[in-house]
Design a binder for these strands. Structure first.
Length: 232
DNA sequence: TCATTAATTTTCT
DNA sequence: AGAAAATTAATGA
């Protein structure tokens, strides 16, 4: 098999960037580039759209509104990743906004087809990006059905450690700026609950979380606690 | 077991 | 100093 088609979907992870499609960078002249200050809306609920957006710099957030005024965070689109707001009718409930100053390049379907013609690898990159998102939300659906909130938070921390943890001496160091609020949004649990859970982990000496680093002292125990029912 | 609200305190920029 | 994040407590499902 050709090496260029030998690919893998990464496992469940932080919903950020997924697979980058930086190959689009060199086709930006074919699209329409625009700069957005932090906090501006790129796509609002009910706005028809038929573009693929490539984030050259900055970061976007995608969320979905609900009838009761809630707004469920879905995922980030980080630098060099893409958002596929294609084929959206006036009835969609997605919102996309910038959480950093960002420059975004928009490609219409026609322009994307032209790029596909020039560069077949882009097709695979975009496919892989989309399938990674699908797989991520499959695991989300599973966890929301079968796992309690505490399990979901612990599992996230555990996976984070496996994927990004660097072993230093007897413990792991994870470089991440995840806030408790963000952990809550990702796992679908209240941020107050996240706070309590992290406090429990700290008291048991399993882990310690600071602003931009998480220290995991007992990965095995963390793994076991995913399935424990704990009392508050 | 966890969400929610509210009231405070701590930390960031 | 003001905003954002984290903590704590209380209540209810």
């Amino acid at each position: 098999m050709d090496d260029s088609v030998k690919r893998q979907i990464p496992g469940p992870f932080i919903p950020e960037s997924f697979c980058q499609v930086d190959r689009l960078e060199k086709y930006m002249h074919l699209g329409y580039t625009r700069v957005f200050p932090k906090g501006s809306i790129v796509l609002s609920q009910g706005m028809e759209s038929n573009v693929i957006m490539y984030v050259q710099s900055g970061c976007l957030a995608v969320s979905m509104g609900a009838d009761d005024g809630h707004n469920k965070f879905l995922f980030h689109i980080g630098t060099h990743s893409i958002g596929m707001a294609t084929f959206l009718s006036e009835f969609h409930e997605l919102q996309i906004y910038t959480i950093k100053n960002s420059t975004v390049c928009f490609f219409t379907v026609e322009q994307i087809l032209k790029i596909f013609h020039e560069d077949e690898q882009v097709i695979l990159d975009i496919l892989q990006n989309a399938l990674t998102k699908v797989y991520y939300f499959m695991t989300q659906a599973r966890d929301l059905n079968y796992c309690r909130p505490s399990s979901r938070v612990f599992r996230l921390l555990y996976n984070l450690c496996l994927n990004e943890g660097k072993q230093v001496g007897g413990y792991y160091v994870i470089q991440t700026k995840l806030t408790q609020k963000a952990i809550g949004e990702i796992t679908g649990t209240h941020y107050v609950t996240v706070c309590k859970l992290i406090n429990i982990l700290e008291k048991k000496g399993v882990l310690k979380k600071t602003k931009d680093t998480i220290y995991v002292y007992n990965l095995e125990k963390l793994k076991n606690m995913i399935n424990e029912v704990l009392d508050y």
